[in-house]
Design a binder for these strands. Structure first.
Lengths: 172, 172
DNA sequence: GTTAGTGCAAACCTTTTGCAGCTCT
DNA sequence: AGAGCTGCAAAAGGTTTGCACTAAC
């Protein structure tokens, strides 16, 4: 989608369009996916087995600095890593289920309102705004109420949310 | 402010109020400050020179899991670390200047609106919502336009924003 | 042919873990 | 007394850096 126009902008700005960058750009741009550096690396390797993880990070930083991708945390759902998406014209919030990890995108005027209000209240020049909402999706909501009924009482077992953090990563 | 009531809640829940936890609780609760683990550690050491960095992390996780503090990213202004504040009744967004790091807090109905809309649109049960806005404060806005005039042309010098990341930490 | 970009290895920063010993209640 | 906490050392997870080589323009 946006990948083509991004490539154009890069060229204009005198940034070299290497084989690796093309691969990554296309992957990030598969709209709807919010991939982290590691996932991007894994997918990129399928197309270019020689690509290095460092190149992934460097490319992400380049695109971020040029304002072509946005970096998300997704409420640190599965650890400390970041997720990336091509910057869309339309501002949106990310709604993430803290149990299953499902991500929804929320478009709505309150988002633009915040932007405008911050500009007028504080005289800030707003460059980026990020809203993330965490909770339980309809499906997990039901499952959770069952869980609570069955395993009632265990108050502060190490929280399920943090428990999910340790990500599984093959050694490369 | 809230430190006293938090201590009460902890006691009620059977969590031990150790010397270390009291120190940290009081530090986090100095309202208005958004400290990261390392800063908290440094300050705590002034009051209890034996305290360990690990205890800081464990305490922060405890308070987070119990819903007593909120974890912020502040747009990763100075690196990958997190910042903490005691959870206030009133939801608010954080507005951060990407040049000087100044943080403002924005209270406003658009925030509650997002929450409600996400609940009705997606059927999500919202637990946390986080909005962060990055840009330039009035002061830095002025300074920046000067900078641009003087050093015009240098398009993609490693971005000032990321350049500020490497944090200075004594090997303490 | 230049100069930007890549791969590799090694560092770095932030956070977590395992375990023995200490301390709140 | 005893479960809950702490400190220490060590590891893990994610990301960045230095440098020699390679490839895009």
């Amino acid at each position: 989608m946006a990948a083509k126009s991004i490539k154009g902008s890069l060229r204009e700005r005198g940034v070299r369009l290497t084989r690796q960058r093309k691969v990554l750009l296309d992957l990030i741009d598969k709209t709807g996916l919010h991939l982290d550096a590691e996932q991007l690396y894994a997918l990129a390797k399928q197309q270019d087995s020689k690509i290095n993880r460092v190149t992934v990070y460097r490319t992400l930083n380049l695109l971020k600095d040029m304002g072509m991708v946005d970096e998300l945390d997704l409420m640190h759902w599965s650890g400390g890593q970041h997720y990336y998406e091509t910057r869309l014209k339309q501002e949106h919030a990310h709604v993430i289920c803290l149990r299953c990890g499902k991500v929804e995108e929320f478009y709505g005027e309150p988002l633009q309102k915040i932007r405008r209000q911050v500009e007028s209240h504080f005289g800030f020049q707003v460059l980026i705004a990020r809203t993330e909402v965490g909770g339980y999706c309809p499906h997990c909501r039901r499952l959770r109420s069952q869980e609570i009924h069955t395993a009632a009482g265990k108050v502060r077992q190490d929280s399920a949310v943090r428990g999910r953090r340790r990500s599984v990563r093959g050694k490369g």
